[in-house]
């Protein structure tokens, strides 16, 4: 796992912050052991990093062979494709979240997200694994640590897996393209 590191000074500051947080935690009275709420997740790779999405928002996953670009849509709409006769639009999260692009990756896996109201696919480089995470025990995303805006992050599991907030992505007003509403 490669974590892009900042300058040394910044790292030192972060170490101090983590230590301070731990100290604060230890000072608290021990909590009652709770039943962890586990959520099924799908882990994928995008722009050389690992991310996860909650399985309950995922309709299907497939490899894309052909994308039809739709002119006049924002750049983060990669285009459309047909899934068993249904047209599904595709979102490039790298552009939506302004993740700096380096190198050339496959980006030909599609994860179809839906909340019943809106459905679209997001492009990924590779589907790595499925697994579970305790949703109520995720570490908060540290500002600046991740390349993605914290609004779209549920939290970080095991200090290295960024669990994206599928509900927040689906509900993002930028996700609906409607030219009739000027």
């Amino acid at each position: 796992m490669t974590v892009p590191s900042g300058g040394d000074g910044e790292d030192a500051e972060r170490v101090m912050a983590v230590l301070a947080e731990r100290a604060a935690k230890l000072a608290l009275p021990e909590e009652e052991p709770r039943e962890a709420v586990l959520a099924d997740i799908l882990i994928f790779r995008l722009a050389h990093r690992r991310y996860a999405l909650e399985m309950k928002y995922i309709r299907e996953v497939f490899i894309i062979r052909e994308i039809t670009p739709v002119p006049g849509t924002p750049e983060y709409i990669a285009g459309i494709c047909a899934v068993r006769g249904e047209i599904v639009s595709l979102v490039d999260l790298r552009i939506l979240f302004a993740i700096p692009q380096k190198g050339l990756t496959d980006l030909n896996r599609v994860i179809v997200l839906t909340d019943g109201r809106i459905t679209f696919g997001i492009l990924a480089d590779y589907i790595t694994d499925i697994g579970t995470v305790p949703t109520d025990d995720l570490a908060p995303a540290e500002p600046g640590e991740d390349l993605i805006d914290e609004r779209y992050i549920m939290g970080v599991a095991d200090g290295q897996l960024t669990v994206l907030d599928a509900a927040a992505i689906l509900a993002d007003p930028r996700m609906v393209i409607d030219d009739s509403r000027q």
């Binding site: 039809t68 739709v70 002119p71 006049g72 849509t73 709409i77 459309i80 047909a82 006769g85 249904e86 047209i87 599904v88 639009s89 979102v91 109201r117 809106i118 459905t119 679209f120 996700m175 609906v176 393209i177 409607d178 030219d179 009739s180 509403r181």
Partner: peptide
Amino acid sequence: VRPLGSQLRCVRLIEGAVI
């Protein structure tokens, strides 16, 4: 003619898609 899906509700100059 099929609609462009629930995300692309109305796109300038495009009416829909055909397979």
